[in-house]
Design a protein around this nucleic acid. Structure first.
Lengths: 180, 180
DNA sequence: ACCGTTGTGAACATGAGTGTTCACCTGCTG
DNA sequence: CAGCAGGTGAACACTCATGTTCACAACGGT
């Protein structure tokens, strides 16, 4: 029940980041007093949501074999599947100013950055900074989640869209088209 | 002076979207009363900022020759140069719920979408929806602006980063590397 | 020197969100 | 049955952003 509360709060705050605690409580079908009992302050609630999302990311990171050849593909596919609960980390305004949450994000970014760096020159371009590649990846995830929520993109198509766009780009590959 | 006020307000609200009008006025070096005189309400101020940014985009769109072969490259390069004042359109929370602003965004999106659609099959991949390509483009711009503000990316490098990443992707092109 | 414009600070009323307390209810367990 | 844990609505005080009014100062043009 507590878990469900966090999820409902997440989507409520994602839909309207300025929603009051009363709105959140109502959306979760729970009294405002109860909400306050579980999360004493607003920032406590937001921090709990963020940490819940970060737990999900952390568990994904632990499942990926970073030594595998297709580690990045695997990672992206799994991250896409997490959906809105992780989207909160990218979308919620001001979250980056919560030092505690921000520090944890940086920590979780590190292994991915290392992976990217290691793959540069083989699977990944060497002429771009690792952080740029990382953020390009995140941008793809962001676009996918946004499109899914808007109903433009089927969740099943999302991983393929993200991977092919981020990796191959949007330019028409004339070599493939002209020499079939 | 009025123009400078809008710009200062833009960066102030971009740095902290929850900043009060008092904070904005102080950042602009102007009395809160004066701010209220020019923009009667908070939403009026935000809408003015958004419309100012949209004016910039509109003027860029009018400068681009949509019939040219490198129309997209030209467009992206010009948009990157607009910088933070347009970043507001992508970053400011809740702006998408302002129907007036949102309608104008859709209007300005349209010619770009048309351009993309027209180029699909020649310069652009045909196997991706036009809206996906558009949002990928926006994602690249977003990343660039964010990196510039954070001091990770030199403004002069930004257009190249965005274009090469969005068009070619981040995968190492073994064909180009192995057969120099 | 006069006057309209523009900006300014101070003060005020208002409304909304927040956090807290309290009395009460429900269901379960010993 | 007694008691306890968890949940609830009502009510309250408090803070803060907002919007408005007003009297006053600076300035430029006539």
């Amino acid at each position: 029940m507590s878990v469900h509360l966090l999820q409902t709060a997440t989507s409520a705050l994602l839909k309207d980041p300025t929603a009051s605690l009363g709105d959140v409580a109502k959306a979760a079908g729970v009294g405002r007093t109860t909400l306050h009992k579980r999360f004493p302050t607003r920032t406590a609630l937001i921090r709990a949501i963020a940490n819940d999302a970060l737990d999900l990311v952390e568990s994904v990171l632990s499942q990926v074999d970073f030594g595998a050849d297709d580690a990045i593909e695997d990672l992206v596919t799994r991250l896409v599947a997490l959906g809105p609960r992780v989207e909160f980390l990218m979308r919620f305004p001001g979250l980056e100013r919560d030092v505690e949450v921000h520090a944890r994000i940086l920590t979780l970014d590190q292994p991915v950055l290392d992976l990217i760096t290691r793959l540069q020159g083989t699977r990944l371009r060497r002429d771009l900074p690792a952080w740029w590649i990382l953020h390009t990846l995140y941008g793809g995830l962001f676009n996918a989640w946004e499109a899914i929520v808007a109903g433009r993109l089927a969740p099943l198509d999302a991983p393929r869209f993200v991977l092919t766009t981020v990796f191959e780009g949007v330019r028409n590959d004339v070599r493939a088209v002209d020499r079939p």
